[in-house]
Design a protein around this nucleic acid. Structure first.
Lengths: 336, 336
DNA sequence: CTGAAAGCGCTAACAG
DNA sequence: CTGTTAGCGCTTTCAG
């Protein structure tokens, strides 16, 4: 038996399709009687409006896109959950898009999604120089960025990445460390550049002479830190503490340290950034700068939906605002 | 500037919309000349067909739904990636649905998605007695199950959960263990019941007298194993090995063991199931029964798309087939 | 307060 | 080989 449509409801209730539409969407008055008849018919036929027809008519789909580099990076499921929870609550469906940091894939997604009358985008990816994102906003498409550099021309929610590593480095220094390495992600990602800057500045601040060898530069992925750590520890620049650009990097670094026979934190302290739940399960439990990932996701979704609905009403986007969320240094057992 | 539609293309190319549709969908012959003109116009206007209109007309959306309990459980991002990769490759978009094991939420998703002319569903959730899923299939909606009990009436891809724990337990016995505990997930989830059965059967097989105290029963989530482990280890039933129903459970168990001062594997061996990438980073690296999660996702997507396209052509679904993927026992350092 | 009719963008059937 | 037309299901004027 095929799905009932608005005509079926109308004829069962003995009214016209227009009236059914009006009662269901409630922007206009309908008499108590007909209203009741229609509701009964809706119930009887288990009628649910066809989304494609609505979308076609309205030019919007009550769907939003969340674009992330990889769902396999454990920070994104948390952000995703935040986005989804508020989206669902507000009657929106979320489409998840993995780009693997590939700009072309990202562009493809955008154009495909536009085709689907998507209502707006949240970009949690980190590539830069994405003119096409600015163009999107200029074309009037609601867009929110999560932890992505922007020049205040687009809504965004971020943490202060500089401050995060600045704090962590200060802590390390305050506990007596004078040789501190940093595990750096891809140079092309501004989040990591900011984090490096915070680290460097804190060092300078304390008059610690920086050695370029202290920076471990990721090459093919987080696993690259396994051998990077081994080499660094075997070199004359062996540090007494390592600040990792993310928790995942810290995990690999700890693995490498263990395998080389170093004790954490006695021989070397390790500290991460993100504070994903797994960090507390590591041995030793990882100290980390916490990022409110779930809240970042939910705030991003709220902002996006506000934009969407404001645009719906006024045809205009609201002026962009950038929200900076606070981080917190969580000290566990991996630091001395 | 609004998005170009098929009429714009038609008038720019000096032909009718029907002809444009035909060239673009290629089910009918079009002369070289007009074809070229149309393609040029498409390019010039950067025309992309409106998905909602197509969906409305065709009754299908080239979209599939992946229903999972929680994206925060690290096994699902991997399955998801598998699904997405093949879906994208074949021109389908994936909608991710988190149910938190909540049957009502699952039903809501289904009815909402049906409204959107979804082409098919992959259920990677584990609740049972889901008559509504069988009904879906009976109504002719393509459905594939991942690691979910079914009576061969629905396509599925699974591992042999019994065999997984049977093998792991045998291994433990073969290395000299005689007291082996099992960390059990929710009773309501057949995957865990099967795993428990494998464990129990292996024990019996070796003539080991089972103590009910050996079963640690999860209550409020994986974290419940923290205190469960503490109590068990403090009791007279302290085991020399613990088989965890999943890697995540194993992580919490290891944490608890460390905190109580036990050495792994010297004092107690631990073994997980899933073999997620993080397992290799644990200290000590976790031995685990590997599950081909990515492949399970990609196979599920392939099966679903076959069903969708077969239905498209013939109006019928293919007879269901259940695929059992193989597992492998990966021995690392958490077992002795 | 309600019905009729037009149209969102596309495809498929029917002519020609 | 190509144009015309109808209609997918819904909303929204416009009448009344």
């Amino acid at each position: 038996m095929a799905r009932a449509n608005i005509k079926d409801v109308a004829s069962l209730a003995g009214v016209s399709p227009g009236t059914v539409s009006r009662t269901l969407n409630g922007n206009s008055y309908v008499s108590k009687d007909t209203r009741a008849k229609i509701l009964a018919a809706v119930k009887e036929l288990n009628y649910q409006p066809n989304a494609a027809a609505k979308t076609l008519k309205a030019g919007r789909s009550h769907t939003l896109a969340l674009v992330i580099p990889s769902i396999q990076n454990p920070i994104f499921p948390i952000v995703t959950q935040g986005v989804e929870d508020v989206a669902n609550m507000q009657g929106y469906t979320t489409i998840l898009c993995n780009t693997n940091e590939d700009t072309n894939r990202e562009k493809q997604y955008i154009s495909n999604l536009l085709t689907r009358s998507i209502d707006g985008f949240i970009f949690a990816t980190i590539t830069e120089k994405a003119d096409y994102i600015y163009e999107l906003r200029e074309k009037g498409v609601p867009v929110v960025l999560v932890n992505r550099r922007n020049d205040d021309e687009i809504d965004a929610v971020q943490i202060d990445n500089f401050q995060a590593t600045f704090d962590a480095t200060n802590y390390l220094v305050s506990t007596g460390h004078k040789t501190i390495a940093f595990a750096m992600g891809h140079e092309s990602i501004n989040v990591y550049r900011d984090r490096r800057e915070g680290y460097l500045t804190a060092l300078k601040h304390h008059g610690i002479r920086f050695h370029p060898e202290w920076i471990m530069q990721e090459t093919y992925g987080p696993e690259s830190f396994y051998s990077l750590t081994k080499s660094l520890m075997a070199s004359e620049y062996r540090p007494t503490a390592i600040l990792a650009g993310s928790d995942i990097k810290a995990f690999t670094i700890m693995r490498s340290l263990h395998d080389s026979g170093y004790k954490i934190p006695e021989d070397v302290s390790v500290i991460g950034i993100d504070n994903i739940p797994l960090s507390a399960l590591m041995e030793p439990p990882l100290s980390s700068v916490s990022q409110p990932l779930y809240q970042m996701g939910s705030l991003a979704a709220k902002k996006l939906i506000s934009q969407i609905e404001h645009k719906e009403e006024t045809g205009q986007l609201l002026p962009p605002v950038v929200d900076i969320m606070t981080t917190e240094l969580i000290i566990r057992k991996s630091t001395l």
